[in-house]
């Protein structure tokens, strides 16, 4: 029986009634279901980390932290180090984040701040979302057959003219960081754009009205009011995009060159953790597989740190701009 001391006491004509026992039952069932789903996800993550960790344990014992600072990967000599891969993963993802972020946010501004008619906006949005549906192998092929030849002349010119700039210090001889990062940028663009669009759309109309009411021009409204207001949402998009770029495998394995190499040059070949895993696994022996598991663990940790840092920045902007505790 539902506890309701008010029904008797209140005026006889009131239509107010407590929720029925059935309503409470539904509430309890739904709650249990939600808890179950949430804890299942956490359990799954813990299980994956545990599995990878135990597979990697022998490698961790043998190589220790030297694994992270080592720069050679040679299964024959039993020497394993992933510093170049860590570098390549972060560097390529960062370049992709900058390019994809600028374009993604730019597109979001273009689509939400009444630059285009609503119908045209839908066309743009759908097209951008289509980019997310293209398999990464296709991006890889496109990169090899279209992007690399396209980049070559420009890369050559940049290298010859500005070879004292570290970014352009080598020649683009085929696969390399630049094509890989550009393809990554295209791949994270839909994520960044879609989430930023939502962030802009969530801004109440009256905020925009207030900004125009102060006599701000369109660009002042966008840069000084809309962008800060949407910033926590945009950041969420950037973090997701960055995470995606860190873990992207197929297209990178095809485009980055898979060479253990630490260089600032955009045109030199490099390697990433995910691409190392993909390209080495098929022919790896037991010892090497353990080392690869260790590499996978490193990638997991990097992704985890990036997400936590992103969350912290997001919380900070929320507090700063929106006054949320």
């Amino acid at each position: 029986m539902v506890h309701d001391p008010f029904k008797q006491a209140s005026s006889a004509r009131t239509l107010s009634a407590p929720p029925s026992a059935n309503d409470y039952m539904k509430d309890i069932v739904f709650r249990a279901f939600a808890y179950f789903c949430a804890s299942a996800i956490i359990l799954l993550v813990v299980y994956i980390v545990f599995e990878i960790g135990s597979e990697a344990l022998p490698a961790i014992k043998t190589h220790g932290l030297g694994f992270i600072t080592g720069t050679t990967w040679d299964a024959n000599k039993g020497e394993f180090g992933v510093l170049p891969e860590i570098w390549g993963t972060l560097y390529s993802a960062l370049i992709a984040l900058v390019i994809g972020g600028v374009f993604g946010v730019g597109i979001a501004i273009f689509l939400t701040q009444s630059f285009v008619h609503a119908k045209l906006e839908l066309v743009f949005r759908t097209t951008i979302e289509l980019l997310a549906a293209i398999p990464s192998v296709v991006y890889g092929l496109w990169g090899i057959y279209v992007l690399i030849p396209l980049l070559r002349p420009g890369a050559l010119w940049l290298h010859e003219t500005f070879d004292w700039v570290p970014l352009f210090s080598t020649e683009l001889s085929g696969p390399g960081l630049a094509p890989a990062a550009l393809v990554l940028a295209i791949m994270i663009l839909p994520t960044v754009a879609a989430i930023s669009v939502d962030a802009f759309k969530r801004i109440p109309y009256r905020v925009k009205e207030a900004a125009y009411g102060m006599g701000a021009t369109k660009w002042e409204v966008i840069l000084k009011v809309m962008l800060p207001t949407a910033s926590s949402g945009i950041l969420a998009g950037l973090v997701l995009g960055f995470g995606r770029a860190l873990g992207e495998t197929m297209a990178l394995a095809m485009l980055i060159g898979n060479v253990n190499n630490i260089s600032f040059s955009l045109f030199s070949p490099a390697n990433t953790l995910a691409s190392l895993l993909a390209s080495t696994f098929p022919e790896a022996g037991d010892i090497e597989v353990q080392a690869l598991m260790y590499a996978a663990l490193v990638l997991l940790v990097i992704t985890f740190i990036v997400n936590v840092a992103g969350l912290a920045i997001q919380q900070y902007t929320m507090r700063k701009f929106e006054g949320k505790k």
């Binding site: 009256r206 207030a210 125009y212 009411g213 102060m214 006599g215």
Partner: peptide, 15 residues
């Protein structure tokens, strides 16, 4: 709008 300012019916501070 720079010369003719406005206070709206509902509060709308910037974030």
């Amino acid at each position: 709008r720079r010369y003719i300012g406005m206070v709206f019916q509902l509060p709308n501070p910037f974030s």
